[in-house]
Design a binder for these strands. Structure first.
Lengths: 224, 224
DNA sequence: CTTCGATGACCAGGATTTTCATGGCTTCCC
DNA sequence: GGGAAGCCATGAAAATCCTGGTCATCGAAG
């Protein structure tokens, strides 16, 4: 399991990190909130262990920020604050669990296992949404404003890739690599063509357009 | 949210049940382990709150039994035992969270919300398994013994149908109806042909065969 | 030994994907 | 504002892939 530990106290941090590594996990240890947020954003973790008290950006704000960006990585808060209200606050901020210091390593381990074994639909949603457009990945069904849209396999794959990264521009090169698995420049406009066809099915029949062209770079799904 | 509370102490049980109902949940309250297990088995709940100490069947055994039947309903344990070892034990038994009595209602509520907002994969698995064969429905990837197998769409659909009914014989007619949507007898052996192609990819390269022929009736996936 | 199923080859038709050519629209620069 | 160049959109043609059908042969089960 890939675990990110954000803990400013060096000895506690090392204690946790080493213990988890001994259990076979891959652990990244970060000592402050700001860096932690960056790392959490760029990396992909199964679980995060976050101290509530951190220099700079505190744990609560960190998780709130993360959740606001749709990152749903399970978070286990660590705290020296034992008050009930604090605990509730942590859970409400989007934490998945809470452990009060001092704690026995065994309990941390058990709780991480419990969090980790949760069905990980998290990083892997079964449906993607943007405005009134919805993709059901499991049943391969696409609907917009309640209407079912039939997509060919390649169209589906293309839309899926864009939807998974909605709001972010995808260049033709990125799309060719991801959807076509082409790693050189074939001097073709396959992408354009498919975008065009997608639009014909997904945008044309409706009021607003969700597939945006970003001139000079690529395409993007409008944020829902 | 539908919540099952298994708690023998009448006043605690009522306290929890009423509090949860006030929050708009639908609550069933059961006072002993045996009945609780029955109720958990026949009903469909989003979350279960289980006291560890119960007359008859204790909470731990109850959850273990439940998990053994593949029931993955999230469980929040309640306990008066504050020892660290007990808590670990509960989590390992398949509990998802743990709350030590006495507790403030707000914390119970927050934890239930945290557990409940986990995505449910229940009724609709994202992957199908039989022995060492695995189908990832989300990514349309099939692997056997770690090896990736490429299937054409129709092959995938056929295998999926068989896998969803593994162990049960599917006649050619059933398969044609389900996979080909043909409701008459086209006097052809399409099914045979595709089964053969499937076998070529799924069974042939491996030691044991998973696609069994049931002479005179149809085909079946061997139970994993 | 009779019947049912397995398999491999092959083809045709259709569906899907890619390429290509054209024309429109932007942007930039003078 | 007028071009020119680059970008993009799109329709149609071409190439490719997938599917279903047929058939012949072989093997296994009853």
């Amino acid at each position: 399991m890939k675990i990110l530990v954000i803990e400013d106290d060096a000895s506690t941090g090392a204690y946790i990190a080493e213990g988890l590594r001994e259990e076979g996990h891959s652990v990244d240890l970060i000592a402050n909130g700001a860096d932690g947020l960056v790392q959490a954003t760029i990396g992909t973790y199964d679980v995060m262990v976050v101290d509530r008290m951190l220099p700079g950006l505190d744990g609560m704000s960190l998780v709130k920020t993360l959740r606001a960006t749709k990152n749903a990585t399970p978070v286990l808060f660590l705290t020296s604050l034992g008050g009930v209200d604090d605990r509730i606050e942590g859970l409400q901020a989007g934490g998945d669990d809470y452990l009060v210091k001092p704690f026995v390593f065994g309990e941390l381990s058990a709780r991480i296992a419990a969090i980790g074994r949760r069905p990980r639909t998290q990083g892997d949603p079964t449906s993607l949404k943007a405005a009134d457009l919805e993709m059901d990945l499991l049943h391969r069904k696409v609907t917009r404003a309640g209407q079912v849209i039939d997509l060919l396999p390649r169209e589906f794959a293309l839309l899926e890739h864009l939807m998974r990264r909605k709001g972010r521009v995808q260049t033709r090169t990125m799309l060719m690599e991801a959807v076509w698995d082409i790693h050189y420049d074939p001097l073709t406009n396959v992408v354009d063509t498919h975008i065009s066809r997608l639009r014909g099915k997904v945008d044309k029949p409706f009021a607003t357009e969700l597939i945006e062209t970003v001139r000079g770079s690529g395409y993007r799904i409008r944020e829902g």
